[in-house]
């Protein structure tokens, strides 16, 4: 079974864009181990020849006509209504590049 360290837990949190404190990194390490212990039984199953199932309906290649459905369109006002930070009809987003400058 893969062994999870606190460093790994912190790295995974960073990948998932989550901030965790020391209490959480300790608690999550324990929870990770508990979970991995349970799911490790998958390694004992003979899966040779089995194709993976990603969806169960059997549906394939679903198309629809490229038509505008005005009934599902939002006005600018409706689209912006739930945003915390807007400016002149735009969503304001946090700066993602050159954060150090």
């Amino acid at each position: 079974m893969a062994k999870i360290t606190s460093t790994q837990v912190k790295h995974i949190a960073k990948l998932a864009h989550l901030e965790i404190d020391n209490r959480q990194s300790v608690a999550f390490k324990k929870a990770f181990r508990e979970t991995l212990q349970v799911i490790d039984n998958l390694q004992s199953v003979k899966v040779e020849g089995a194709e993976p199932t990603h969806q169960v309906t059997g549906l394939e290649n679903i198309w629809r006509d490229d038509e505008v459905d005005e009934s599902s369109m939002l006005s600018q006002k409706e689209a912006l209504r739930n945003a915390k930070n807007v400016y002149q009809g735009y969503f304001v987003v946090p700066r993602l590049i050159d954060q150090d400058e």
Binding site: I12, H17, L18, Q24, F28, F32, N82, K84, V93, P94
Partner: peptide, 24 residues
Amino acid sequence: GVRFGNDRSYFGDEAKRRIMLGTY
């Protein structure tokens, strides 16, 4: 938290744990 809702610091422990296990 850009178009609706609050930012990711509002997630509870259970959600964080699950997101992270999936990421892993």
